[in-house]
Design a protein around this nucleic acid. Structure first.
Lengths: 327, 327
DNA sequence: GTGAAAGCGCTAACAC
DNA sequence: GTGTTAGCGCTTTCAC
């Protein structure tokens, strides 16, 4: 239903439907003051459909003072499959509420977040980690009503992950634990949080805190770390995530060691290749699906100025250990 | 340099600098008709800085009829580290030309691409695979000047990848090849292209086409495929990508086989965990960096209506085999 | 060199 | 119920 011609405007629809442009706006936006006759409504809707009318985002944003665009700022970190699933969930939930999600990779050479926000006229910005205060302020001035770093989700803090990892190892008799930090700086904050969970579990069990080592996704690096842990009689290692854990596994293999006999290794995130590791990797799985939904609801609530009804949110299944051969 | 107050407008800057709003627009946009005195220029720039002025994307887009937003549509496929690197490169190159890149995951439940495009008022849309004609037309009508599916990059078609994989195995004496297709539907088109390269290489060498099997990232699945290949005396397998290759490796391990003695396996993309596979995975590496830059230049050229100067583009290093232990 | 004025396509008072 | 009207913040033509 469209000629390749010029873009149809709201006025075109009005003309086609034989009503005023205002009426079109009312119908299409489903304004609460439902003073539109059903017949007019249908005529307008039909005309819009026929002309393949699509509201002009900029014009709408300019006039209304707010847009339906939500910007997700993804930090410069290795994006895993899990994250993309989360993004899709978020996008779907927002779309269901009439909001459009776009993502921005905040790499070193891209534009600053406030500029991007201004360019797409986002009315909300979601981040993966806390923004620095300057950025937050800039975003607010631009009109981004909400700034919700993900980690503030009370039910999905990162610490339980570390705790679960450690508890799993402790339950299997390990008394000297290691922790494998990722080398990538962007992953640091998240890693610190997870590590804290491990420390807490160790403290609660009355054993020494974990021996923390940083390993990049490099065989030599990982092999070195393995040697160091072995020298300190570490027998179980919690890795920041599955990729790091896979590096450890490779480092062990390089040293002629195998899990779990020589060393137990537990990862986190349950990436698809975790079960393909040799041996298959024990890991922590969590419910990104629900987290995405919850985040979306939070944004919607904040945007509409309503109080977020915690009870109405989809429940988050707590993270749990996926036991496989590596522990 | 900013009070938490309301957003500064172009008019505010004009007032602060003691000039007209028009002049501000001229200065900030660096209009060709450089009829602005250096002194005025500085005053305006300084005022803008002081007020932390940021142009209102929507207003600008509405008035100018075009925005500086470029939308990258990423299909519903597992996002790997390689892709994120490419996106960053693209964003950086576009930012250098004053353009802002945002990404949209075109999952099943998100909004249709044209809607997203209209919402952010993108003046160009980049895709990973060809859009269907209807979508293209819709995008054009919305005013998206460019639609550039990535795969049309002459110097970076997918076929050479498959060809290289096959040639590598052929050079090592393998005469019965297998091809591992990914199960994920979003990966299909790309996989078909790569497969074609393998077929071409086989034909050129005068051997039978590869025995194609589809394997998800699942141990049982992969083990089954391995059994089938073995039954047909296949000795070398080209996998669509490294993850699929890792699955094959796991399937082999499950069958008590090891690479390259029983089976040679070659992946593609050189993901970080490829070298951590056991044994380390031979794979194809390519230059996403340059591809991103080239794509960005193409968009800029198309947006400014200029002819793309092929010669001025950063050269793309052809894909090459990274030989490791699995072949 | 600089400014006045006319919109871009839409929303939202307000009038009928 | 529906139309009139006045902007939203910016670009751009044209006059000074």
């Amino acid at each position: 239903m469209s000629r390749p011609g010029k873009r149809a405007t709201s006025t075109d629809v009005a003309r086609a439907a034989g009503v005023s442009q205002t009426t079109v706006s009312f119908v299409l936006n489903d304004r609460p003051g439902q003073r539109i006759s059903e017949e007019t409504r249908q005529r307008v809707l039909e005309a819009a459909e026929r002309l393949d009318y699509r509201p002009h985002g900029s014009a709408r944003a300019l006039a209304a003072g707010r847009s339906d665009v939500v910007l997700l700022s993804v930090p410069d970190l290795p994006i895993g499959a899990g994250i993309s699933r989360f993004v899709e969930e978020l996008a779907a939930a927002l779309a269901a509420r009439g909001l459009t999600l776009v993502t921005h990779l905040s790499g070193a050479h891209g534009r600053p977040l406030p500029d991007v926000c201004a360019a797409v006229n986002a009315s909300a910005v979601i981040g993966f980690e806390s923004f620095d205060p300057e950025t937050v302020q800039a975003l607010h001035r631009i009109g981004a009503d909400v700034v919700l770093p993900l980690q503030s989700d009370d039910l999905h803090s990162m610490q339980p992950i570390g705790r679960l990892q450690a508890e799993h190892l402790l339950a299997r008799g390990h008394r000297y634990l290691g922790y494998a930090m990722p080398a990538h700086p962007g992953l640091r904050p998240m890693a610190e949080e997870r590590l804290q969970g491990v420390r807490d579990a160790c403290a609660a069990a009355g054993i020494e805190p974990p021996m923390v080592l940083t390993t990049s996704l490099d065989l030599v690096d990982a092999a070195q770390a393995v040697t160091q842990w072995a020298a300190q009689s570490v027998t179980g290692v919690c890795a920041f995530n599955d990729e790091t854990a896979i590096a450890i596994l490779a480092g062990m293999h390089d040293n002629g060691l195998t899990a779990p006999a020589d060393f137990a290794v537990i990862g986190s995130d349950d990436i698809p290749t975790a079960r393909l590791a040799i041996p298959a990797l024990t890991t922590i799985a969590f419910d990104l699906h629900a987290v995405g939904r919850r985040r979306a609801e939070a944004v919607v609530a904040s945007l509409s100025g309503l109080q977020l009804d915690q009870a109405a949110l989809p429940p988050v299944v707590p993270p749990k250990v996926i036991q496989r051969a590596s522990t």
